[in-house]
Amino acid sequence: MKPAPFAYARATTLAEVFDLLETHGDSARLLAGGQSLVAALNLRLASPSVLLDINGVAALRGISFADGRLRIGALTRHAELGADPLVAQHAPLLAQAVPHIAHAAIRNRGTIGGSLALADPAAELPACILALEAVLVLASREGERRVAARDFFQGLYQTALRGDEVLAAVEIASQADVPCTLQELARRHGDYAIVGLAAQSARGALRLAWFGVGATPLRTPRAEAALAAGDVAGAQAALAGELDPPEDLHGPPALRLHLARVLLGRAAAALKGH
């Protein structure tokens, strides 16, 4: 299929992005890596009248570390994320996640900002952000506002981003030397996971963020508490009350719940062996 006709505009500054968003409103879509958006255009699942290309906006690039916090620019490509020494040191969960994201060609173009703004519930990075309790920096003409990851993902493909805003960066408190693990089960390497789990230890506590099991990435506080107390079986049992996975071509909800329990056990072992 061919995409429906659309116009194209390229911005080089955030100010230009804000101008273009104001002019075109809801009929515009931001183009970052394009790895989900362009496919949606070609399938005519999306038909925006204009694409606003933000790849030239320098303010959205770069990875830096200051005051105990890692800042990852929204335009950071998955391949850059996976290779960056600051990320490996301060947010190793993200570095672990990158090899699971699709395939090399997609990782070379896709961006962390694009992944988070799209909020695909089966994607790795939104769950990682949730497990890392990261803060998302949303920029608009009025300035920046900061939204906690748990407040950012609001529903299926729905986020806290307003129409006049751009996701500028992600900020993460350093997790250096803190155990973490990313576990997922996909039929083929690079596919969206049937079930995935991003697990991050945090000073006596544990954060479990699931993907592929609901409309958004999900935390499971009761399982977290049980696992933090060393009760793996209790944590696995708690999942039945905390996850309500959908049925799809992979199988019935019971399949996902079962696999989630298996992943939880494997994550517990991985964290213990860390």
């Binding site: 992979h250 199988g251 019935p252 399949l255 079962h258 696999l259």
Partner: peptide
């Protein structure tokens, strides 16, 4: 032979 079918055969789901 999907995971769901194999797990069903194993009585796990």
């Amino acid at each position: 032979f999907t995971p769901a079918r194999i797990l069903t055969a194993l009585g796990k789901i």
